Computed example of a mutant assay.
Amino acid sequence: MNHDRHIPSEDDAITDAAAHWCMRLHADDCTAVEREAFGQWLAADPRHAEEYQAMLEIWDTADLLPRSAQVVPLPVRRPVATRQWRPFASAAAVALLALPLAGWVGWEQGWLPNSYQHFEASDHLRQVRLSDGSSVELNLHSELRFLNFKDERQVTLIKGEAFFKVTHDSSHPFIVHAANGQTRVTGTQFNVWKYEDQVKVTLVEGSVLVSSGGNAGGYRLGPGMQASYHKGDFEPELNQSDDYANSLAWRSGRLVLDNLSLGQALPVINRYLDKPLMLADDSTASIRISGVYSTREVERLVDTLPKVLPVYLTRSKDGSTVLNRIVPAPTRG
């Protein structure tokens, strides 16, 4: 796969990020840590600086930023090829320059949101309400942002896990973006779990349409179904699960591992660890684990694994904990 190819979904992610940074950097409560993170994001790709500059021009012209806000200057950049603005940017720029009521026009044309929200949960579960009336429960170490456009509601799950109860609006679809895929609904209850480039969608009520990066049409889920995909997958893997409630146990602070291989369990466990747990080899990955644990005490779970499984712990060069299978001694015959 050619990862250097510039695809529309990458453009959308960069636009979302530029909008996020534009808002945060002009907010009164913006922290030094956020500004440092912005600098790192800006330096990661020349397109980031281009998109941020375009966002500044559009929003400054529309007078959407506070009068007292200090414009965050961009660093001197290497020359880049002339950029063809997407219809979103060019049409918005023309409208904003031409009309006094630019913000209203941007909303009416579907270019600009009338509401932006950003939420994080660190070491506590958090329940939040979006501006459209939908509610979201955030798991530990989770983060998302919400933009309300005239023709659709957009959520980006940046990291972690969230349970959504979406206010029904058939003319105003609700779309959750995660790892180059999306879940599209009009009103329902569902869970989205994301770790690195992996995503799992669990439907509780109603129906949702799930698509991964390579499939524009998507697949419809019914209650009790799950869809899983990695970033770059052409289509998600679908499953009908009788015990899907295990995927929602985090809402009561529990991590349920029901006869999973360590290869399956580690992404779930690592979501709660500062440093990911590693597997020494495929043989170790095949060991199965069961149990119910507290999501607040996953670090302790790692320490107890050698007591309940045929494994021992070592450290890698970068300091990560590695699980190694204990190979039984050969029998003498």
Rank of each mutant, 00 (worst) to 15 (best):
A95V: 07
L248N: 11
D282N: 10
I14L: 15
V298N: 03
P79G: 01
P306G: 08
M55C: 11
I269C: 06
Y116E: 10
F88L: 15
I14S: 13
N246Q: 12
K275Y: 05
Y219M: 14
P66L: 10
Q109W: 12
A265G: 06
R5V: 13
V199S: 01
S283D: 13
P46K: 09
L99E: 12
P328C: 03
A91R: 15
V208F: 07
I326Y: 09
N2G: 09
V105T: 03
W111V: 01
E152M: 14
G106A: 04
Y272S: 01
G39A: 05
N180E: 14
A62T: 05
E196G: 00
E120K: 15
E161Q: 13
P310T: 05
R184G: 02
P73G: 03
A54N: 03
D12E: 15
L305F: 02
D28W: 03
L221F: 10
I158G: 10
M225T: 02
P330V: 11
Q226T: 13
L260A: 10
Q127L: 13
V33R: 14
Q53D: 07
S9D: 13
Y219D: 10
V199Q: 00
R47E: 02
Q264N: 08
K194G: 04
V136M: 09
G181D: 04
E57M: 08
P310F: 05
S290V: 01
L203E: 01
T284N: 04
E152K: 15
E143S: 07
N180T: 09
T304K: 11
L64Y: 11
T82D: 06
A249Y: 06
V298W: 02
P173N: 06
E205R: 14
E143K: 06
N191V: 06
W41I: 03
D303K: 09
K159A: 08
H172W: 12
Q40C: 00
W111Y: 14
P223R: 08
L64S: 11
G213C: 09
V322M: 07
I175P: 00
N246D: 13
H177A: 08
K231S: 06
L97I: 05
V208Q: 06
N259I: 00
H48P: 00
T156Y: 14
G213W: 04
F149E: 08
A216T: 12
E51R: 10
S90W: 14
S211C: 03
S286W: 01
Y52R: 07
L147K: 14
A285V: 11
E297R: 13
H20I: 11
A43P: 00
V192F: 06
R47D: 02
R184W: 00
P75G: 02
P100W: 00
F190A: 01
A265I: 06
D197A: 05
S247K: 06
S90D: 12
G319C: 02
T183E: 01
E196T: 00
G263S: 14
A95F: 07
Q117K: 11
A13W: 11
R220K: 15
I289D: 00
M1K: 14
G214Y: 02
P8F: 03
H26G: 15
L260G: 05
G103F: 04
